[in-house]
Design a protein around this nucleic acid. Structure first.
Lengths: 195, 195
DNA sequence: CCTTGTCCCGACCGATCGTTCGGTTACTCT
DNA sequence: AGAGTAACCGAACGATCGGTCGGGACAAGG
């Protein structure tokens, strides 16, 4: 059997390169030629590992979505007061965004041109909806301010969180992951919490 | 002279159609064939009105940038206490985002593949920097909470504002423009203001 | 009438797109 | 050594890309 493979390209190593290029040039703006140059492999060789460009996209957004949906299954997201569960989800969203940065970045830029992209958009909407329900429950408990519509507040907080992919870079000596998570929670909840 | 033109296509009417398609499919994902179908005009006829695909992009992002930079020249953005000027800029940003929605949407999705896109990114950075200076001044006045880094807070508030283009639709009976502006200001500043 | 200029079109250009194919290299296993 | 196969490549595929070209339809001015 081939238990010990030579460390050549695998779909995973190829994926990490592809996602990086996708994020720099945009998915539509990236050609297979671009990918082959970045990976140091011939264009046709890519097809030995993956079925095509769209499979790379599907693998990437799947990884991002798995990370996000995993949050909802964590204990702190399932038990306790709604507002506390919400805070946990928000903090963990930031952490997942940062730990899976390139994959989530790609997910958040999907437009819906292909079947894969539309599937990704649908799952995203599903996730957003589940978090919105959490915020609605917190509002029903009276733990969240009532002068801003729940639906609107959800979208704005999501916007704040998701914007992290536009500027966060792990190498710079700027704010670290936990620092960012703290800042987001503080900023979001000092606006959301009832004083 | 041709003082009274027939109401055929102009660069402006063409632009509004193009921007809409760009936002649906992405700039790179939109072909001139797509544009010609959407505009009800032949592909080659488009070149009678504009020099090409990139000019449409340039016109669109220019319009968005003009709207944003116009805010900084308003009196309420130039005189008064820094925190009040900041609040005015934030509110007006939301209003401009909504009034010029498709153009700003396109601007915020630019990636930097062409010279035009890189120019747009540079002007965006310039605008962001000027608003960040405003927030820094408000922090120096002690009007903004000090437990979140200024640079980080700026980016998060920008993220919240800019996310509006991802979900706001003028036709739905959801929150209206002023309502959204109020919500953003309230959410952002109850987290930013010193209590 | 004829000219002039605007507006528009189908046909076509070279380049590039994502993908396929035939074949070569290089490693693993017996 | 020889067989088998995973990894890789250059060349080429049909399709589509952004853009060009020569000319037709039509209204305005003489």
């Amino acid at each position: 059997m081939t238990t010990a493979k030579r460390d050549t390209y695998t779909p995973e190593t190829l994926l990490s390169v592809a996602v990086q290029v996708f994020n720099e040039r945009g998915y539509d703006g990236t050609s297979m030629e671009h990918l082959s140059k970045a990976a140091g492999i011939s264009k046709s060789s890519i097809y030995h590992h993956v079925s095509g460009k769209e499979e790379l996209l599907r693998r990437a957004v799947s990884r991002a979505l798995d990370g996000l949906f995993g949050i909802l299954e964590e204990e702190h997201a399932r038990a306790g007061r709604a507002v506390d569960r919400l805070e946990h989800v928000v903090r963990r969203m930031v952490e997942v965004l940062i730990s899976e940065l390139p994959y989530v970045t790609l997910l958040l830029r999907v437009r819906g041109n292909t079947e894969t992209e539309r599937w990704a958009l649908e799952r995203r909407r599903d996730f957003d909806h589940q978090v919105a329900e959490l915020l609605k429950a917190a509002a029903a408990d009276g733990d969240v301010r009532g002068d801003v519509e729940v639906r609107l507040a959800t979208r704005l907080v999501f916007g704040m969180i998701n914007s992290i992919v536009e500027w966060y870079r792990p190498d710079t000596r700027g704010a670290s992951g936990p620092e960012v998570a703290d800042a987001v929670v503080r900023l979001a909840f000092s606006g959301l919490r009832q004083n």
